[in-house]
Each structure stands twice: as C-alpha cells, then as structure tokens.
Design a protein around this nucleic acid. Structure first.
Lengths: 206, 206
DNA sequence: TAGATTGTTAATCGATTAACAATC
DNA sequence: TAGATTGTTAATCGATTAACAATC
C-alpha cells in the first residue's frame, strides 16, 4: 500500500499511533479524537490529522475516529495485517531475551529461525526453537523465504552478519549491535542501542 | 555544558557520532574527517560539521578531526565523562538481559538497583545484584540519589512505575514497556519498542 | 440547532544542504 | 606551494502549526 511519497518521519509515527489505539481498544473504548490521541502521545492534534490525511479520510467531523476502524486502517498501511516471519542472529543474553519475548507473536512477528556460531549453543533450544549453525544462515533464510531479521551479535561481527543477511534476501534488519550497519538501497535498517538513548538524555542532566 | 538552545535532534546525533569515533579509536585510527564519518553513518558531511560547530571548533582545516580529542569533547558535551548510576525496574526476561548486558558498564552506565514486585524474585540475585522489593523503590532511589532509570515492566504497570520514579527524583527514563509514558516537564523519556521499529520497516516491504 | 471535530490550506518554523573563504 | 578540509553563511528544502470551511 506504499502509494505516493510519504515522508519516512510520518511512517515512523504510525506505529506509535497504532500502539495507542490498540491500548484504547483494550480499554474498551470505541471512539477517539486527534486531540485525545495527541495528548496521550505528546504530539499536536494537527500533526496527527495531517499524517493520517496522507492515506485517506478515516474520521468523521464532529465525532472523531472509530478506534477499531482506524486501527485496522493503520495496520493495512503498515503492512502488519499479516504475520512476518523473523530470523534472529545471535543467541546471547539479548538474543535469548528476544527469543522469549511474547510481544512479537502478539503483534504479528514470529521468530522462525535462530542462529549462533558458538558450538556449545548450536543444537540447544530456546523455547520451542533449536539454535542453528550460523554457517547455514544464508541457506536456511533463503529456503524459508524470510525477509526480516534481528541481529544481536557482538559489534565486531555485526557488519559481516548484515552482509550475509542481505545476500540471503533479507530486506529489513533490526540491529541490536552497537555499531552502524551499512546496507544497500532497498534494505531497511533500524538500530536499537540503549546506551545511545541514555546518552541522549544525560545531556540534559547535571 | 548545556549552553545555548541546541536542537534536540542535534543532541540525538551526538551519541551516534561518539560511537563511531570510539570504534575508529579501537581500530587504532588517529584522524578522521566529516566526510569519512558521514559515509560511515549515512549522514552528510555538512550536517556533521554543522552539528559540531554548535559546540565549538574541534577540527583543523586540511586535516580533519583528531579522533581521541573529538571523542573526548563529545563525551563532555553529552555529560558522559562520568559514571551514571541506573535503577532497573522489572526483572523479567528483558530486565534480566539488561542486568547482564556488559555494554552499560563499558560505556559509563552502572546498574545500581534492581526492583521487582514478584515475591519469588525478590531477594534472588542477578549477577552481583539482589532484586529488591518494588515497594521500597522510591525510598531506595532517593537514598542512592540515582537520577536515571530503566523500566521493563508489563505495559499495564509502566505508567504507575514511571509516576513513582518521578516522585523519587528520577530525571531520565529509558522505557522498554510498549506504552507511551507521560511525565512532567524536566523529566526525559526515551522509548524502546522493537515492534515499533519492525512496523516502521514493514511499510516498505511486500 | 449548537457543538465538536475533521481534512486541508497557507503560513510559519526549523533543519539540511550547497558553496566557499579561510587556513592547515 | 597545492591539496584538503574546516566552520559558516545563505539558500533550499521539508515539517509543523494555525486557522477555518465543511459537516457530522
């Protein structure tokens, strides 16, 4: 559903809107407004309406947005009205926590393959999955047709792993290694480095 | 060192620059340029120079930037030339992984207190730390004078925990719960939700 | 109807980039 | 010196906000 040229910064806000809408649904709410959503999220009402208007007209003057309807629309836009299978590379502390995290299944991401290069880990299990030998990574990913990967290997190995993933056809990488990954155009990367987030806040502290 | 009014978006890039510089140091490099740094990070050289110029003149025409010197300057700016003690709330899978993650100590963040509200966990240990009773959270945080916290509790409890943390004097919260936190002005919040990052990428996939 | 809220336009605001003199 | 790269200015580009007609 990637129509016109929507700014990436708008795409980046949609999952935030979605998460908040789903929470409202859980609370049993039926209707919300750009103002209420904005207050919850610390975003201006005008911005929310502008963002949504890029994709269509989802609200009703005078009443606002039907939560279930808008939620569904945003899931359509984001392409998450389906299950995405995910490959996880690196079964250390972070990788293991990711493998056990229920939030992925609940929200449409299914970890399908887990790799590590440590002989002591290969063959052992995390939950229902057997840790596979990283040397078989490209082959297994291609065979399964997985497009999304998470990387939780040491920084020194991350770029090499990313190169292999790209080679194997991965199109989206969520990188937990504290290093910038360079990938070709057409492959998306998102970085999660808690220290970067912390350092961004300490600037304001004394 | 929070001088003029530096845009927060600039502050947000500094930890990225710093991480890359520290990697170059590890590689034994002495000097870099805005161009090289930009290529590594996918940021324009002009932007990097502009960002840095907000804080002073750190380079030399014709040669570029001394890596060790610039690295030190950025750490000064970000206020990370010191160790920040951190309180961790929630000792589930994510919290436990965070508690064991070495990257924090290595980069100046020391987890000092760990809390949970599960009687089966209270008193048990993660590494060198004993999990404390969450009912003592405010008191212990105040006593220790900790200003930074990480929250890895279920979504339903996160806002309540945040309120208590603010009450206890916490000024910066790194939130792993998949919910937006509302805090008063003067308290900083950063959110890490892997699903949000994944959903931001699936928009571009088919 | 009166009140509320949308979708959209135009104005404002802020961030990025291009270009270049200064100079190492 | 010639070549390279900074710091900075001005121009461009893009994002946010304010305002309001439309209408539920």
């Amino acid at each position: 559903m990637a129509q016109k040229n929507i700014p990436d910064i708008v795409i980046g806000r949609l999952p935030i809107y979605l998460r908040s809408l789903q929470r409202m649904e859980d609370e049993g709410r039926q209707v919300t407004s750009s103002q209420e959503l904005g207050e919850r999220l610390g975003i201006s009402a005008a911005q929310i309406r502008k963002d949504l208007s890029q994709f269509g007209e989802f609200g009703k003057q005078g009443t606002g947005y039907n939560i279930e309807f808008l939620s569904k629309k945003i899931r359509d836009i984001l392409n998450v009205e389906r299950v995405w299978e995910v490959a996880l590379v690196g079964a250390g502390d972070i990788g293991s926590a990711l493998a056990r995290y229920n939030g992925f299944n609940q929200r449409g991401f299914l970890i399908k393959l887990i790799f590590d290069n440590d002989p002591r880990k290969i063959g052992s299990r995390i939950g229902e999955f057997t840790i596979l030998d990283a040397t078989r990574m490209a082959a297994e990913i291609q065979r399964a047709g997985v497009q999304v990967a998470m990387v939780s290997v040491p920084a020194a190995h991350a770029q090499g792993v990313a190169d292999q993933l790209v080679e194997a056809g991965i199109k989206a990488i969520l990188n937990y290694a504290p290093v910038n990954l360079n990938v070709p155009a057409g492959v998306r990367v998102q970085h999660i480095d808690p220290v970067v987030h912390l350092q961004r806040m300490t600037y304001y502290l004394d």
